[in-house]
Write a protein that binds this DNA or RNA. Structure first.
Length: 207
DNA sequence: TGCCAGGCCCTCTTTAGGGCCTT
């Protein structure tokens, strides 16, 4: 973990994008994020961004974000500059974080920015801490844990809000099942680095 | 012409293959 990242504060983020791979020319079209301080949302960020080309019909249908909406949006570089200021040096959380990290890295590379926080992944943690869930898609986990939601999916702020609530469920699971009352971000990262079978023994050893 | 991501994780594995998850 970055030594400059304040404890107990994380940025839970989610990108909507033109596709799956920035290496194939895909760009971000929306970023949403919730700043959690000791589990409580204290700030939010949501902006559409214009990637400079038309998005596919599939992405329009999948996200509900239209080419018309993006035509009126600020360019990616402008939005990502504001987002860089928003995240500061905080650590970061996303569902299937490797996906969002790739786009964050690619978009920040476009504007010459480098962030100092580290990532943790709510999907990898859920696989280890909620092994009985039917699957580990964000929407399925929201239903499995009875997480309150407004029925909006595949929009950046809505998904980051649900991921933030899932993150709190994961912390609660560590508190209730393993009596770990103040799980650190570092511990969350360590859980991800363990195999599913090794996690219970590892967590019991933390006490 | 046909294909086109990448990392994690499980297993009928490790000299591999395929499903999951994100848009």
């Amino acid at each position: 973990m970055s030594t400059s990242a304040p404890a107990n504060t994380v940025i839970v983020l989610d990108f909507e994008t033109t596709g799956l791979s920035p290496n194939q020319g895909d760009r971000a079209i929306e970023i949403g994020a919730v700043m959690l301080e000791k589990g409580q949302p204290v700030a939010r960020f949501q902006e559409l961004m214009n990637p400079g080309f038309r998005i596919s019909r599939f992405i329009e249908d999948y996200t509900g974000i239209s080419n018309q909406m993006l035509k009126a949006a600020a360019p990616c570089e402008e939005v990502m500059t504001r987002f860089y200021d928003f995240i500061g040096g905080h650590n970061l959380v996303a569902h299937n974080a490797s996906f969002d990290q790739r786009f964050l890295d690619a978009e920040f590379a476009q504007i010459g920015c480098r962030y100092s926080g580290e990532f943790s992944c709510s999907m990898l943690l859920s696989r280890r801490l909620f092994p009985d869930a039917p699957n580990h898609k964000l929407g399925s986990l929201v239903a499995y844990k009875n997480i309150a939601n407004d029925g909006v999916f595949h929009r950046a702020l809505a998904d980051s809000e649900m991921t933030a609530k899932l993150w709190n469920c994961l912390l609660e699971e560590l508190q209730q099942s393993y009596q770990l009352h103040t799980p650190s971000f570092k511990l969350m990262q360590q859980i991800c680095s363990k195999s599913k079978a090794a996690v219970p023994k590892f967590l019991h050893a933390q006490n």
